[in-house]
Design a protein around this nucleic acid. Structure first.
Lengths: 231, 231
DNA sequence: GACCACAATATGGTCAGACCATACCTAATC
DNA sequence: GATTAGGTATGGTCTGACCATATTGTGGTC
């Protein structure tokens, strides 16, 4: 076994090693959101690597939404474990949309799947519908397409919140945000938003009356109005 | 204008600036997967920042699955734009699960939503079922729980592939991978996998026969068997 | 003793420059 | 023409310095 076919001595980059160590430590020590990680310099010393490598690992963790860094001193300074998957998901979707490898159609279909589920669940829960009514009012008063979309997003995300699954709600928010540009275009192309508002009232009614099937169907029709099959 | 109240000269970190520049360049120049970014040193020079900052930005982009770095020389070397949202999504979910801010229940419910959708869509498509049958065979011959879960994942992901939405398929893979540890535990707790295999055959049959409702219901029952309400 | 100004300190953020590892490219060699 | 040795552009890592920020300690003042 002394000859060819050397398993490469080093396949993982240093910062990946650091990542693994940190993740292992999280699992091992049972760290949760709010706990602090050692300072960069100290971590570098502990792991026997340079601070650069630690920093690159930190950037990754920050990107993944599990660490938040704060300069200065005191209890709130340093690298603190958090759990904010939202921006991470949003960034992943937005950038991959920008690279045109994901079709808008696929994103919209995903939204449809999630919104149907959320509306049906919300109808089963039948709670917190006041937030929905609130968002509806805002939309009536919206001037620009941007404003309308903003309130529209709030309305749809509120449904997901009511449904009570944070992961799905996070997906929902990320999908909406990453395609907000296209949503504005769709509204502008449509011109008149009264039809969409009628859809919203229908959805709200179905949720209030606790009718999951009607809620899901209302959402389906709504998205079909907003994004006609053509595009 | 020489005195107090300076709006902070610098609110964004340098690497965030680099990120924005790169994203802008992607949109502006219409870069897509396969295109190359300038070398780190060159980019640093162009943007007037240090190479460290460029590297941290690269780490972020790599984490988000839109850049792949390769050392060496030649056409494949350097930072190449890609589009691999899978690992990014997986990492986000896995780490956030590890921080215990997401309940396993929420992840499973999300899986259920996606798998119901995928199975129904696959039944409408009625294509590529040979891959499903293939995965079934592998599971029959699986010895350990790990092996079983591996083939199980292949089976379920194959359904998502058939459904033809890459974003949802990516979600599916990420969910499965990030909770694979718990899947193994569930299988070990269950002991006998013949019931799960019967479910699989039922799902396959429904897809082959093009019965979306039955396919969705079969998936629902399957997950209920694998993860009883208790946990 | 209470309060305030200022220095000390710990933290992340950035930079510069060096060196290593990798992989392609080129030219000399056979 | 094939092989081989060097050149070179790339990412990966390290070191050490300095800056920006925010808390903490310290001493003086009232």
């Amino acid at each position: 076994m002394t000859d060819t076919h050397w398993r490469p001595v080093k396949r993982t980059r240093t910062f990946e090693d650091v990542l693994a160590q940190i993740e292992h430590r999280i699992a091992e020590d049972g760290l949760t959101a709010g706990d602090r990680l050692p300072a960069e310099r100290r971590l570098a010393e502990q792991l026997g690597v340079s601070r650069s490598s630690v920093r690159e690992a930190m950037r990754v963790l920050e990107t993944l939404g599990v660490v938040s860094s704060q300069a200065g001193r005191g209890p709130d300074a340093g690298a603190v474990l958090t759990s904010r998957p939202d921006s991470a998901l949003t960034d992943v979707l937005r950038l991959n949309l920008g690279l045109a490898t994901l079709e808008l159609r696929e994103v919209i279909d995903t939204r449809l799947m999630i919104e149907r589920w959320a509306a049906a669940q919300a109808a089963r829960a039948r709670a917190g519908t006041s937030a929905l009514a609130e968002a509806l009012k805002g939309m009536d008063e919206a001037g620009s397409a941007e404003e309308f979309v903003e309130h529209d997003t709030a309305f749809h995300c509120a449904i997901a919140e009511i449904a009570g699954n944070r992961l799905i709600a996070a997906f929902m928010r990320s999908l909406r945000e990453s395609m907000s540009r296209y949503a504005v275009e769709a509204v502008e192309r449509l011109g008149d938003t009264s039809g969409l508002q009628a859809d919203h009232r229908r959805i709200l009614r179905a949720v209030q009356e606790g009718d999951p099937e009607e809620a899901a169907q209302a959402v389906t029709d709504h998205l079909a109005h907003a994004y006609p099959a053509g595009g």
